[in-house]
Simulated scan of single mutants.
Amino acid sequence: MDRQDHPLPGAGAAPLHRAPDPLRGITPKVLTESLRAMERDGLLTRTAYDEIPPRVEYELTELGRSLIEPMNAGCEWSRKHLSELMRARDAWYASS
């Protein structure tokens, strides 16, 4: 897959309809609100094309790309500690 075909922002512009599977549980309204907030905060750019059907692409800005490494670290931490977190959660619910 080349950069233009990548479904995630930051690896090139990505059309919204090519969002990855984990986003399928999010309503279009919530996704749009989230993307607009990220645009407002300077994390991504939005390019709208005057086409039928309408087409919009999103791409991470340099500021947005600067979050990739810390987010990857958070994901790695959660992968390492998920079982501990789940045990703590189960224990908390059992004692409540």
Results as ranks from 00 to 15, higher is better:
43 L>C: 06
22 P>H: 00
76 E>R: 12
89 R>D: 11
9 P>Y: 05
2 D>M: 10
95 S>K: 13
89 R>G: 11
28 P>G: 03
70 P>D: 09
75 C>V: 11
93 Y>Q: 15
57 E>P: 02
12 G>Y: 01
45 T>M: 05
61 T>D: 04
38 M>N: 07
69 E>P: 06
6 H>F: 07
32 T>R: 12
45 T>Y: 03
29 K>I: 14
34 S>Q: 11
42 G>D: 07
55 R>D: 14
39 E>Q: 12
7 P>S: 07
2 D>A: 10
77 W>T: 10
63 L>N: 12
37 A>Y: 02
10 G>V: 03
1 M>L: 10
69 E>F: 04
44 L>M: 14
91 A>S: 15
84 E>V: 00
22 P>D: 02
12 G>N: 06
86 M>Q: 13
51 E>G: 06
35 L>T: 00
43 L>W: 05
25 G>Y: 01
37 A>F: 04
45 T>V: 09
77 W>K: 07
4 Q>E: 14
60 L>A: 08
69 E>M: 06
57 E>W: 00
24 R>C: 08
32 T>K: 10
67 L>I: 04
12 G>W: 01
70 P>N: 09
35 L>E: 04
72 N>A: 15
16 L>Q: 01
21 D>G: 01
65 R>L: 12
41 D>W: 06
46 R>F: 03
44 L>Y: 05
35 L>V: 08
4 Q>W: 08
44 L>I: 03
79 R>K: 08
84 E>T: 02
46 R>G: 04
22 P>L: 02
56 V>I: 15
89 R>I: 02
9 P>D: 08
83 S>N: 09
66 S>W: 02
25 G>T: 02
15 P>S: 06
43 L>A: 04
86 M>V: 13
87 R>Q: 15
85 L>Q: 07
67 L>K: 09
11 A>M: 12
32 T>I: 03
50 D>T: 05
27 T>P: 03
21 D>H: 04
17 H>G: 00
62 E>K: 08
57 E>M: 02
27 T>C: 07
53 P>K: 01
43 L>T: 04
35 L>Y: 05
9 P>C: 09
14 A>D: 04
61 T>E: 04
30 V>H: 12
72 N>V: 11
69 E>V: 13
14 A>K: 02
94 A>C: 13
96 S>C: 12
73 A>S: 14
86 M>A: 13
46 R>I: 11
40 R>Y: 10
38 M>R: 06
75 C>I: 12
15 P>L: 03
19 A>K: 08
80 K>M: 04
93 Y>N: 14
88 A>N: 13
40 R>W: 01
20 P>H: 01
95 S>A: 15
67 L>E: 09
94 A>L: 13
51 E>S: 15
36 R>W: 09
2 D>Y: 10
70 P>K: 03
62 E>L: 11
55 R>K: 14
67 L>G: 08
13 A>L: 05
55 R>T: 13
83 S>T: 10
31 L>Q: 12
8 L>S: 10
32 T>S: 14
45 T>L: 07
44 L>D: 05
59 E>I: 02
70 P>R: 05
82 L>V: 00
92 W>K: 13
45 T>Q: 07
31 L>W: 09
